[in-house]
Amino acid sequence: MKVAYIFATTGHTVSYKLGRMILPQLEEDRHGADVVAMFFFEDNNYILRKGDPLGERLVKVAREKNILLMGCDQCCYERDIADKLFDGVLIGCFPDLYRALASNPPDQVITL
């Protein structure tokens, strides 16, 4: 099964659910689903900023497993980080996400 994650809420969304569950499972090849994309809203975008330790691990896994990483463009501009993200991480909005996923669509979209 192919899934896409949308990190929509703040709080422990990235530090806990991504950082302590999804990412380690991906690193250990035991997540149980093929992740095709992750899209980040609001403060969750800080993980995509160059230098973030969790982001370093995420980007490495994303490159290995061909996972699209995209930050919400408005959220990134609002936080002045749009041009400070890891190489290969895009900013965009729903049209960009859907276009990027058109050739490799997920079976399920999980909003966290």
Binding site: A82, D83, I91
Partner: peptide, 8 residues
Amino acid sequence: VQGVPAHR
């Protein structure tokens, strides 16, 4: 306009 990533 500083701060726009290259792909935009």
